[in-house]
């Protein structure tokens, strides 16, 4: 099954409430995906010389202070850290490749889950409402967020297999559905040197779109190409630093509902996750058409 959630706030004052609004939506969609959940929030971008590195520690009582000290000593002195439970985000001027190598060598129990100037991603297994509480999602602020509640139909249940999936920088995707040709997509991309982290079908879709964008496509053009390359059922909700994009496959048998007001655009698998949003009674509520690309810019 799985539940997808997205919220892009148009009014600046609402950015402070982003986490609160999204958390209610995640809790509502918990029944569609009770085995794991994840969220990507997009903040104001850090300066061009820096990156946000979102991290997940495999152990629950991880010593982030000690991690931070090593990070500053061994990578870059300007690295700052913010952490909650076994999640942390490091903002640093260290190059991504260098940071990845350092993690692999010196901090093998810490997994890098997103990189970019704006994106911060959370992923974990368990009930979505527990995950939201554990990482204090209600306190998150930002321009937009996408989230996912997972009921696994293929591949394992683990934090790494939870959505969103990310590839490259400041890009992520959540998926309700299943792809039937992820292995051929994967073989095609691996032959181009693209590395995969899991055996999940959604990762193939995510890396395919990111590869197309690196080849020069806009996200919308990449999605158009995917209609003929990706086989299967999907409602994809994607986000980049300044956009939220929604698309359903030609058969559109995986649900999606959009609610739009002057203040926000909200997307969910079911209306009940939107029912508690402000001014929902006057919102333009509609079901997205198959193979039509809906794109909203911050």
């Amino acid at each position: 099954m799985c539940g997808i959630i997205g919220l892009l706030v148009k009014r600046r004052e609402l950015r402070e409430s982003l986490g609160q609004l999204v958390t209610t939506m995640i809790e509502c969609m918990g029944t569609r995906g009770p085995d794991s959940a994840g969220l990507a929030v997009f903040h104001e971008p850090v300066e061009a010389t820096h990156r946000r590195f979102a991290l997940h520690a495999q152990v629950s009582q991880f010593d982030w202070q000690n991690f931070h000290e090593s990070c500053r000593r061994e990578t870059s002195k300007d690295a700052s850290i913010h952490f909650v439970a076994n999640h942390a985000v490091v903002i640093s001027s260290t190059a991504t490749g260098q940071f990845k190598s350092w993690l692999k060598e010196k901090q093998p129990s810490v997994h890098l889950i997103s990189v970019g100037r704006a994106i911060e991603m959370f992923k974990d297994e368990g009930l979505p409402c527990d995950i939201a509480r554990k990482y204090a999602f209600t306190e998150l602020e930002g321009t937009h967020a996408v989230a996912h509640t997972r009921m696994a139909t293929e591949s394992a249940v683990s934090p790494a297999h939870a959505h969103p999936y990310t590839a490259g920088e400041d890009f992520c995707l959540v998926h309700n559905g299943s792809l039937s040709n992820p292995h051929s997509i994967r073989r095609k991309l691996e032959s181009k040197g693209i590395e995969f982290e899991t055996d999940n079908d959604t990762e193939a879709g995510c890396r395919f779109l990111e590869w197309r964008m690196r080849e020069g496509d806009t996200l919308e053009e990449a999605i158009e190409t995917s209609f003929s390359e990706l086989d299967g059922f999907f409602t994809f909700l994607m986000a980049s630093a300044d956009k939220m994009v929604l698309v359903r496959d030609a058969f559109a048998c995986k649900p999606a509902v959009v609610a739009e007001t002057d203040d926000y655009v909200a997307v969910s698998s079911e209306f009940r996750a939107l029912a508690h949003l402000p001014d929902i009674s006057t919102a333009n509520v509609f079901e997205p058409e198959p193979e039509q690309i809906y794109s909203w810019t911050v």
Binding site: E270, F271, R272, A273, L274, A275, H276
Partner: peptide, 10 residues
């Protein structure tokens, strides 16, 4: 019978 606050329930 009038049923209020359905809020997308099934």
């Amino acid at each position: 019978v009038e049923i209020s606050n359905p809020n997308g329930m099934h």
